[in-house]
Amino acid sequence: MMISALPPGLPHPPQETERLKSAAEQLETSFLAQMLKSAGVGEMPEGFGGGIGEEQFASFLRREQAREMAQVGGIGLAQSLFEAMRERHDV
């Protein structure tokens, strides 16, 4: 679906702005979840392993932690992505 560009300088409709913000926040959430996984967040010590189920639930925990981080500002990636998408939309 092609997004029609608004003339530069005009404000975006509120629903379009919210859609772009949501997409940017989702991207930051995915990035942060991968970073948390790489850092070992949610991994249990070897002697206490709970198998594949534990591994699955650890990914849910990381995802929720990343979502919360992104919602409170995260590392600023969502804001940068939002501004880039908004600028691209103006072109």
Rank of each mutant, 00 (worst) to 15 (best):
V41H: 03
M2C: 02
Q79S: 13
A33S: 15
Q65F: 08
Q79K: 15
F31P: 01
R62H: 09
M35D: 04
L81W: 05
M85R: 11
L27G: 01
P14N: 02
S80R: 15
Q56M: 15
E16H: 02
P14R: 00
L10P: 00
L20T: 06
R86N: 10
P11A: 05
I52H: 09
E28N: 05
H12A: 15
E43M: 09
E43F: 04
S4C: 01
E64R: 14
A24M: 01
A70R: 00
G40K: 03
P7E: 10
P13V: 12
G73W: 09
Q71W: 14
Q71S: 15
G47P: 06
E46S: 14
G49H: 09
G51M: 08
E43D: 08
P8A: 10
A39P: 01
L10H: 06
E46D: 14
S80N: 13
S22A: 12
D90T: 10
K21S: 06
M35Y: 11
E25V: 03
Q56K: 13
V91I: 09
H89P: 05
A66R: 02
G9L: 10
A33Y: 05
Q56F: 09
Q65L: 15
L10D: 01
E16Q: 09
T29C: 05
A33F: 06
S38G: 06
E43V: 08
V72C: 12
R62M: 13
E46I: 08
P11M: 00
S38K: 05
M85C: 11
A39I: 00
A84W: 14
Q65V: 11
G40A: 04
E87S: 15
L10W: 04
S38D: 12
Q79M: 08
E18W: 03
H89G: 07
M85T: 09
G76I: 14
T29S: 07
R67W: 01
F48N: 08
M2A: 02
E54N: 13
F57L: 10
G9D: 04
H12V: 09
H89I: 01
E54I: 07
M44C: 07
A24E: 01
A66E: 02
